[in-house]
Amino acid sequence: MPGHVGQALGKTLLDKAKARHDVLQLWVFQRNHRAISFYRRNGFHEVRKTDGSSNAEKMPDMLMAWRSPGPPGG
C-alpha cells in the first residue's frame, strides 16, 4: 500500500521468507520497476521474461529467483 512504502515492511517479510527457504522464486510484471529494483537489491536475479500471453493479465512479466549463499566455505 502506498502509505506504507519505505517503512521496511517488505524487507522484513522477505527476510523471514529467506530464513525459512534456501530458494525463492517469484513473478513480477516487467513494468513494475519499483518491485524489480527492490528484489534486485535483496539478492534476486532475473531467470526469464515472458510476453505475458500465459498470465491472466496478459502483461509481460519476469520470473526472479534468490538462492541462499549457504554456509561459509560450503
Rank of each mutant, 00 (worst) to 15 (best):
residue 55 N to K: 07
residue 52 G to D: 07
residue 53 S to A: 13
residue 46 E to N: 08
residue 19 A to Y: 02
residue 31 R to M: 09
residue 31 R to Y: 11
residue 14 L to S: 06
residue 51 D to I: 00
residue 28 V to R: 02
residue 32 N to V: 06
residue 33 H to W: 00
residue 10 G to R: 00
residue 6 G to Q: 03
residue 31 R to C: 14
residue 48 R to T: 15
residue 35 A to G: 05
residue 53 S to F: 00
residue 41 R to Q: 13
residue 35 A to M: 04
residue 19 A to L: 02
residue 5 V to T: 09
residue 19 A to M: 04
residue 11 K to G: 08
residue 53 S to P: 02
residue 29 F to K: 10
residue 18 K to H: 01
residue 20 R to W: 05
residue 28 V to D: 05
residue 18 K to G: 03
residue 55 N to A: 09
residue 9 L to T: 02
residue 7 Q to K: 13
residue 5 V to L: 06
residue 51 D to L: 02
residue 33 H to S: 12
residue 41 R to T: 10
residue 27 W to D: 14
residue 23 V to F: 05
residue 42 N to A: 10
residue 10 G to P: 04
residue 51 D to N: 14
residue 5 V to W: 09
residue 4 H to W: 08
residue 33 H to A: 14
residue 54 S to F: 06
residue 40 R to E: 15
residue 7 Q to R: 12
residue 23 V to R: 13
residue 3 G to R: 01
residue 43 G to R: 02
residue 44 F to I: 09
residue 11 K to Y: 11
residue 16 K to C: 09
residue 34 R to G: 11
residue 24 L to K: 03
residue 45 H to I: 14
residue 29 F to S: 03
residue 8 A to L: 05
residue 32 N to P: 04
residue 12 T to V: 02
residue 40 R to K: 13
residue 25 Q to Y: 00
residue 26 L to Q: 12
residue 25 Q to M: 03
